[in-house]
Nucleic acid binder design. Structure first.
Length: 327
DNA sequence: ATGGTTTTTACTGCGTC
DNA sequence: GACGCGGTAAAAACCAT
């Protein structure tokens, strides 16, 4: 009947037969055991050369078994292939799901009748359908878990998580996942969601809580945006202000002033092309200066993750723009 | 790949506490 | 002398082409 195996190494290798066949396979390389002069047999499945008498393992690395998976159709190849960054989830089910052999043989190696063949074919089809649906669900489950984890680590509100999961689902159903890591796409989805919600976090902040590096994040982010035709406008510097202000323990006046500086700067047209984070940081610094609250450039630099040089350059420009307007 | 722009790194000098 | 600030040159990162 059906042979249900842990994993299909090879269509013809089954557990019970491999044990029985140790006698037969011994004809491949027969020598004598150095211990007891018994016959040596090669166990092809484990790549060991063992003595049939005393069980001494003479050589245990005889065979390179290559990849431990084998794909029988393209769907399976997709789910098992190691293209892309390695994740623990590469084999979503740890190889424990049911697999129906492709040979039309029963457990004893006898051929099946036409009727049985048909039946097996139908079973294979359905098994495959359930298996892939299952894998997508697990994939989604893991991704959503990651999104949740990162979102709370970054203090992002519920709404952002929701849009992130919507984006991820779309990516999944549009088959954007193959070749990309779940973690990477999940991070990119959250990044996009945060920006869309006007509650952005910098790339650096994301790489701090995600397992993917900056390169992969930006790459998959671009890809997702392009493929899903998402509209994400450049981050508004003002959206960083309140966070910086509170982390530096400054008051609302600084917050207000910083926003004012930023909007006049925008009107003067000196903000384009400059990094939003740098602008926000500089505005906060300038505002603190104007309202006589002491913060050092290095403090701002630390919380905003922007170099002091950038802060200097920007805040000079911001003040200039403000002067222009008042004068 | 390339070139232009922005940001960072590293270093220096000045004033203040 | 350490610290905050300002400036500069060169390197690195980024982006559009």
């Amino acid at each position: 009947m059906t042979e249900t195996r842990i994993r299909s190494y090879d269509g013809s290798t089954e557990r019970h037969t491999s044990v029985e066949s140790s006698e037969e396979t011994s004809k491949v390389a027969v020598t004598t055991c150095p211990e007891c002069d018994g016959r040596l047999a090669t166990d092809t499945e484990h790549g060991e050369t063992v003595c049939t008498e005393c069980g001494l393992v003479v050589d245990e690395n005889g065979i390179d078994r290559g990849p431990e998976w084998r794909a029988f159709d393209s769907a399976e190849r997709d789910s098992k292939s190691r293209v892309g960054a390695p994740t623990t989830n590469m084999m979503h089910d740890k190889g424990l799901s049911t697999n129906i052999g492709w040979q039309n043989k029963d457990g004893y190696g006898k051929s099946l009748s036409t009727r049985q063949r048909r039946q097996m074919q139908r079973l294979r089809t359905w098994n495959e359908r359930f298996r892939t649906r299952d894998s997508k669900e697990r994939n989604l489950k893991q991704a959503l878990g990651e999104i949740d984890r990162m979102a709370s680590a970054l203090g992002l509100p519920e709404t952002v998580r929701e849009t992130a999961s919507v984006i991820y689902r779309r990516a999944l159903s549009d088959n954007l996942l193959p070749g990309r890591s779940i973690e990477g796409v999940a991070t990119a989805a959250l990044y996009a969601a945060a920006r869309q919600a006007g509650n952005p976090r910098s790339l650096d902040e994301f790489t701090a809580v995600s397992r993917v590096d900056k390169m992969e994040l930006t790459r998959t982010y671009r890809y997702i945006i392009r493929e899903l035709k998402l509209e994400v406008q450049p981050a508004d510097p003002e959206s960083y202000v309140s966070r910086f202000v509170s982390r530096l323990e400054l008051n609302e006046e600084v917050d207000r002033l910083a926003r004012e500086l930023l909007s006049t700067a925008k009107d003067e047209g000196i903000t384009s092309g400059k990094s939003p984070v740098g602008l926000a940081a500089s505005a906060v610094y300038a505002a603190a200066l104007l309202s006589n609250q002491k913060v050092t450039q290095s403090q701002v630099s630390a919380v905003a993750d922007v170099s002091e040089v950038t802060i200097r350059n920007r805040y000079k420009e911001l003040l200039e723009a403000a002067d222009h307007l008042t004068a």
